[in-house]
Design a protein around this nucleic acid. Structure first.
Lengths: 140, 140
DNA sequence: CTTGACATTCACGTCAACGTCAAGGTTTAT
DNA sequence: ATAAACCTTGACGTTGACGTGAATGTCAAG
């Protein structure tokens, strides 16, 4: 029963496959590791070995980067998502909690700024006179 | 009636004052100009002369940069705020409108990502066991 | 007329988030 | 056993948003 195409189950993956499956380059994956965002194990030959969970992890990281956060703050933020439903509760000391609280504030500020400006652009687009190679359009 | 301290009314300002009033460096203001975000006039001596509106303009730009947008997209976005309440309606051709629509989508995506992750961090903070040098705390 | 606080234009330095080789070891296919 | 397709570690290049001078001009005050 193991000859039916590639099994996509819960097995460790090497850097190439993880790259393909997440859409980032291997360089990026090594960079994320260097920044403490990923912690792959090593096979006997030195090859990196990622757990399946790294796929979603990388997507998380990309999400946060696209949202404008730096790897430094992502490093402190991503552990929050590890055990969503897991049993592991990483030790959270007061300093980490304070840092996270600060980050939440910054994210709020970012969301605010983005929302305000997006709305302004939208209002502008709705209020703007659309092109019209013909200047006769009577609003319908 | 003109001897009562410094008049904060509607007069042109030079780069130093604008920098102080917006909290950015003069270097940053020149950079914004280079990027097409500001268009100060010049006095006879070559000094830049900014209108009062530049204060809010710079704040806008900072807002958008903090939100993660690049000067390139800000350059296309900021004109939307020029005439909020003004009479001038800059010519908006289809291409600009399309660009702006794309930017609005990207901003939506950013807001989405930020909101999701902020909420996750918040959930984590609420669910996390706070510090406790004493390990006896019985959930109350 | 010099000093000091402003302004000007180069122009190189920095930091983050990667891209892009280079020079090799490993595994797989033929 | 040799090529092709992986992987490894350096290490230098790039882009964006500025920082940080250097060398110079301008202007009000003493």
């Amino acid at each position: 029963m193991s000859t039916f195409g590639q099994w996509t189950g819960d097995r460790p993956v090497k850097i190439g496959e993880l790259a393909r499956r997440t859409g980032v380059t291997t360089r990026t994956l090594r960079y994320y590791e260097e920044q403490g965002l990923l912690h792959p194990e090593r096979e006997s030959n030195g090859y990196r070995s990622y757990p399946e969970s790294s796929v979603t992890r990388v997507e998380q990281v990309r999400d946060l980067l696209a949202a404008g956060l730096s790897t430094r703050v992502i490093r402190v933020v991503v552990p929050c998502f590890e055990g969503s439903g897991s049993q592991l509760r990483p030790q959270v000391d007061g300093e980490l909690a304070a840092n996270l609280a600060r980050e939440v504030e910054q994210m709020d500020a970012r969301i605010d700024a983005l929302t305000r400006n997006r709305d302004a652009v939208r209002r502008f687009l709705r209020g703007a006179t659309p092109p019209g190679p013909d200047r006769h359009s009577a609003s319908a």
